[in-house]
Design a protein around this nucleic acid. Structure first.
Length: 585
DNA sequence: TTTCGGCAGAAAAGCCTCGGTTGCGAGGC
């Protein structure tokens, strides 16, 4: 289930927004924002901490610690409630519209009484914003565009949110009386980047106890449908979860059916028809006699269709049936194949944890190597300087090999400890240039380069910009190549086939950024890039020790792009990786 | 509101660019 830290972080983020909307002190708003970020990234559950433990979290002092205690004791914070009472929830939702911040939301509410996204859209169409100071025709256009973007993501949630909930539901139901098997299916099992609703499947001879346990879960706010075979609920966060209970001997067919995708299932049913069989969620049947042939496991079902078991991540009708028939399914990269992480941050720039904590946490994951890649100076807000970067390099050299698999610092013998690479995340400027000249870049073991601003250049300019970055002999990896933020910002409008070709030509690696907000590159782009012969790096882009675990989502995305171990450079040995990174230098 | 350095209160809090309007809000990681 979601950690208490996420709840508290969301609460303080809301408080910060409300302070801004009500015209409160901007610095106070920032303080709560910072605290929210620190709490969200803190390793220990805040619900278990006392005042002293809470104040040990950076950016949390006496006042914020008291509010956290108040929250866990009474379920709410009076200061937050006071502001909530002043501002309708819809007004804050307005700030979710890109280009519309707290100041504009405040004007809209105070001048026109607008308190929902729908009312705002109506007001624009009725041209009621025209008389407001600070609102011109271009602003109207941007807001409408933002609303479109917001609504196109609909009620879908990010992968990690759905995964946390699904794993909790499965764990709870697995312990219920009579439950023989339980698993999540659907798009979540296929590791799609966003999830509409969660499908959970359970096997039991009697469904009653399971259905009851399901509806009684603490975060269920509404039971939409309640039957013998299927129950649908909505959680307090508005996410829909379906539970289907099937007889144990139908498990395989049901899991196959409810995992989908629809397109994949249409193909498997066609295959069945050719073999005079009928495939449904209840099993694989002989069409003429109606006898059930198999349905106990997915492997059996696929085998009777003449196919090997197909990993759920491939079940999109993107060639997996044909590949399966010819025994050419890829041997997909696994999370356990990863030997290291090549894009991570520390609190020297915008990360939350100090270098040594990040290194210790990475070592605990069993990595053989680990790259620290804080931001370069051109991302001005991070205030990086040559001196700070070089000082960090000394610290990195000091810690190189000092941490073993157990995540503790070795006293003497450093051989076999996790190796560290000192890297940087460079900023690709509008012309495709990066932060430092070649002489300085030469001192890094690894350079990631990413676009962080100027997203709206022309297609030609963006393409040229990315290609130039690839052509820089010191740029090893292009970080989050499309720079999309799921549900918030579309990817760059560049000719990515030209970029992929440049990557192949220059030996530049494309990142698969594992952060659930990004998952960038996405599966479709990975498939295209792979056809160009490009190599990939699956990176966490961790800004706290907790983010290191996001790697699973990056690996899932890589698998959806049909990648094998050999396609992903951070599965390679350090020797092979280093040789490769020397690139054209 | 936190942090710091000294036990009370001052200082600091990310900085720059863009875009839409003419002094400023929003956004980037």
């Amino acid at each position: 289930m979601a950690r208490s830290n996420d709840e508290v972080a969301a609460l303080f983020q809301e408080y910060a927004d409300l302070i801004s909307i009500t015209g409160g002190d901007a610095y106070r708003a920032r303080v709560y924002e910072k605290a929210a970020r620190s709490i969200g990234g803190h390793h220990a559950e805040v619900s278990t901490l006392d005042t002293k433990g809470l104040q040990a979290i950076p950016n949390v002092g006496k006042s914020i610690a008291e509010k956290i205690i108040e929250y866990f004791q009474g379920g709410s914070v009076s200061a937050v409630e006071e502001l909530r009472a002043k501002i309708p929830a819809g007004v804050r939702r307005l700030t979710a519209i890109p280009t519309l911040g707290p100041k504009k939301a405040c004007v809209l509410y105070e001048e026109l009484g607008i308190s929902s996204v729908e009312e705002l859209a109506d007001a624009i169409h009725e041209e009621r914003l025209r008389d407001l100071k600070g609102f011109g025709p271009k602003t109207e256009e941007n807001i409408l565009h933002g609303i479109e973007l917001l609504q196109s993501s609909g009620d879908r949630v990010l992968l990690d949110v759905a995964m946390d909930l699904a794993e909790d539901v499965v764990a709870a139901l697995s312990g219920a009386r009579g439950c023989r098997r339980c698993a999540y299916a659907g798009s979540l099992r296929r590791v799609r980047e966003t999830i509409g609703d969660i499908d959970v499947l359970a096997a039991a001879t009697k469904s009653g106890p399971l259905m009851r346990a399901f509806t009684e879960l603490p975060y269920v706010s509404e039971v939409i449908a309640h039957g013998e075979k299927k129950t649908s609920v909505r959680t307090t966060k508005g996410l829909a979860v379906d539970l289907r209970v099937v007889p144990p001997d139908s498990w395989g067919a049901a899991l196959q059916y409810f995992t989908g995708s629809k397109a994949h299932n249409i193909r498997t049913r066609e295959l069945a028809l050719h073999r005079k069989l009928k495939l449904s969620e209840y099993g694989l049947f002989d069409t003429e006699s109606g006898d059930k042939i198999v349905s106990g496991t997915e492997e059996e079902v696929y085998a009777r269709l003449g196919l090997p078991w197909i990993p759920p991540v491939l079940r999109e009708d993107r060639g997996e049936i044909e590949a399966g028939l010819h025994d050419e399914l890829p041997d997909l990269v696994q999370e356990s194949d990863l030997r290291g992480d090549l894009h991570t941050h520390t609190d020297l720039t915008d990360g939350l944890a100090p270098l040594e904590e990040m290194v210790a946490a990475a070592a605990e994951r069993g990595y053989a190597y680990y790259a620290i890649t804080d931001h370069g100076p051109n991302l001005y807000m991070q205030r990086m300087t040559d001196e700070r970067m070089l000082a960090q390099r000394e610290q990195v050299r000091e810690l190189d090999g000092a941490y073993g698999r157990h995540g503790r610092r070795e006293k003497q013998d450093r051989r076999g400890g996790m190796r560290l690479l000192h890297g940087v995340e460079l900023n690709i400027d509008p012309d495709g240039e990066v932060d430092w000249p070649e002489e300085f870049l030469d001192g890094f073991d690894l350079c990631v380069a990413s676009v962080h601003s100027h997203f709206n250049q022309s297609r030609e300019a963006l393409t040229r910009r990315l290609v130039r970055a690839c052509e820089n002999p010191y740029v090893d990896i292009i970080g989050h190549p499309t720079t999309r933020i799921l549900g918030k910002r579309p990817g760059l409008d560049a000719d990515f086939d030209a970029v992929f070709a440049a990557c192949e030509r220059t030996g530049t690696v494309l990142e698969i950024n594992a952060h659930p907000d990004r998952l960038d590159l996405g599966d479709e782009d990975i498939l295209r890039a792979k056809r160009h012969g490009v190599k990939f790096a699956v990176d966490s882009d961790a800004h706290s020790t907790l983010h290191l675990a996001d790697m699973r989502y990056g690996v899932g995305t890589a698998q959806r792009g049909w990648l094998t171990k050999d396609d992903v450079i951070n599965t390679w040995t350090l020797t092979r990786l280093k040789r490769f990174l020397r690139k054209g230098r």
